[in-house]
Design a protein around this nucleic acid. Structure first.
Lengths: 344, 344
DNA sequence: AACGTTTGTGGTACCGTTACCACAAAATCA
DNA sequence: TGATTTTGTGGTAACGGTACCACAAACGTT
């Protein structure tokens, strides 16, 4: 246990290959000239010594560590764990390692991570956290640390941002609910300090405000969580027992609506249609299965990761906003209405 | 954009404080003597320069990076994202940063991570992956990289392992199903190359083998996934349409069972009771809510993380196996049977 | 008074790379 | 043929810390 495994350094390789460390370094980085024969003997030496360049030393010398960080509110949140998977997949193929941190949407925690990451010469950061503010952005820019954001950036014009078409998605949800025969649709909307919450609400309002049955009391706020969805649904049904469609601002709240409706004796799908937003895996698990406006979560993670790496490597032409298409996944929670104008 | 933010080094601090770098270093690491007045001026200098020691340089000099890695099959799996959350929480409080990698239970990927981590002077690794084998373990030991394992280690006696009481949990599940009145219980078991799959099967068999209704054809293999659970349930019901209880080897398969039963017209809870294993969040979402043997996922993650850090810092007395208690969470998927010997 | 110990400090080699410069031999050009 | 460029190589100072050693002053101790 004490015989400390031997780890070869570039000097060991140089000695064995009979050349200088400079030559090895040049060979490794494909910078500068190195003769064909020399190259071969270097290869042999590396092979024999099982040499692999030390990344920490490289990091110190070059201020590049091949590591990126992913700051998100909570990795145990279904949406973010899916995202994290995509980020890591892409990062790995490009030779990057991923560090992650849970901010719980608390600015303090986020700042603490940034501080740590700076001392570790991290190459870039992905922010999927909502507390990322102006001063953080400014500091990172000054430090020369590239970053990209999910959903929202501190200054929309000066950063790469990936999100999906929230307004359009909300409109699609409403249209689908109308298509299946709903004639009184409520919306449980998410926190208005989150762009997703806000945009989906706007999208909903725009789609329904011209309809005769619409009244603002069909709007009910909640917190993007299951329990919040349950409570909001209860409040809504108290005001409007005749609601026949609910569009929830995200899937978790939609699941809450499902539970509440079920508990109160409504038949979901037949009597009341429910549509969520996000497309998390769990929507396939509910009973009935949940109709949802699916964000391309994996694609978003892959894209944002690729953008960051491009930015790090200086091959990103320009910072801009990417708004990805969403997709309606119609399932059993929104069946076609039997009653009403249906003529069959 | 070109004015490159100034980042102070230990030498800048030394100059400003009017002492040598040695003294600063001693102050920072609380190693060796430093006069009270000197200390004050060092503090001032650090404050003024907003200095924070560079971790990469530290890493190179001391071969310690305050970084640990978490290798798991898939971060987007509900169980592992919960675990990851706990690991990161604990790591952060001890001043460690967490790198994660998805192995997809492929040995190649896992080895690739180990290789990378070695070059990065990672301080330790948590393996929640099932492909972690003997040679990997040996190599890490030789390299002097501490590691701890979830569920299973390559050599049980020589590593710290955290798991939960799988056999006992299986017995609890059976007992609960019997308690609610089940008299013909099937078991959908997981992959037998996974310790969780194997132990839960053993626990089940031991609990039922002496019962008169038991027959091995009540056992059905699946793959720990929802779709697998559905198929297994279908096969089981074909053989034994009168099954009144199903114990699934994990929650995902139990969810599959729920779906299959529902689809086939069985009333889950009343006619057939279903019990899962793991205690993932999603069990609260199903309808009916799923009874499960809950592993203390967060505690497991926290413990394993703490063990690794202790091992890194040399304060772990001995390597051993930790088997944590599981807990029955009885919910609507296992209601008390009405039929049979019930006298009311 | 002579000696040993504690306190306080600085100098510098090293950790394992990369980047820059210097230099020489070979190849190309006028 | 001499000048210029290309090819190939080595030396060494960084990168930003830590750790060991040397040294001196202050303090006790007998």
């Amino acid at each position: 246990m004490k015989e400390e495994f031997f780890i070869a350094t570039i000097r060991d390789v140089a000695k064995l290959a009979g050349v200088s460390v400079s030559t090895i370094s040049r060979y490794l980085n494909k910078s500068g000239y190195v003769n064909a024969e020399t190259e071969q003997s270097i290869k042999n030496a590396i092979e024999k010594l099982n040499y692999a360049p030390n990344q920490v030393a490289r990091g110190l010398a070059g201020k590049k560590t091949n590591t990126i960080a992913l700051i998100l509110p909570d990795i145990s949140n279904l949406f973010f764990s899916d995202l994290a998977r995509a980020v890591e997949d892409v990062a790995a193929t490009y030779g990057y390692t991923v560090i992650f941190g849970n901010s719980d949407d608390q600015g303090v925690k986020e700042k603490r991570y940034i501080e740590t990451l700076k001392q570790k010469y991290i190459d870039g950061i992905i922010f999927a956290s909502n507390t990322f503010g102006h001063e953080d952005a400014e500091m990172l820019t000054k430090l020369g640390i590239p970053y990209v954001c999910l959903d929202r950036g501190p200054d929309e014009q000066n950063a790469s941002i990936v999100r999906s078409k929230n307004r359009e998605g909300a409109a699609m949800a409403v249209q689908h609910l109308l298509d299946v025969g709903c004639r009184k649709i409520a919306h449980i909307y998410g926190p208005q300090n989150l762009i997703t919450g806000k945009e989906r609400l706007i999208g909903f309002e725009k789609s329904v405000q011209h309809l005769d049955w619409y009244t603002p009391s069909l709007l009910e706020p909640a917190d993007f969580r299951i329990a919040g969805g349950i409570e909001a649904t209860e409040r809504l049904l108290e005001r409007h027992p005749d609601i026949d469609g609910i569009f929830a601002g995200n899937d978790l709240m939609a699941i809450g609506a499902l539970k509440a409706l079920h508990r109160m004796g409504y038949r979901v799908g037949e009597q009341v249609a429910v549509c969520g937003f996000d497309g998390i895996q769990t929507t396939e698990i509910t009973m009935p299965e949940l109709t949802t406006i699916a964000q391309p979560i994996y694609d978003m993670g892959a894209l944002i990761s690729r953008l960051l790496i491009k930015k790090i490597e200086g091959t990103l032409e320009e910072d801009r906003l990417y708004e990805l298409d969403v997709q309606l996944i119609a399932r059993a929670s929104t069946l076609r209405r039997k009653e009403g104008h249906d003529t069959t």
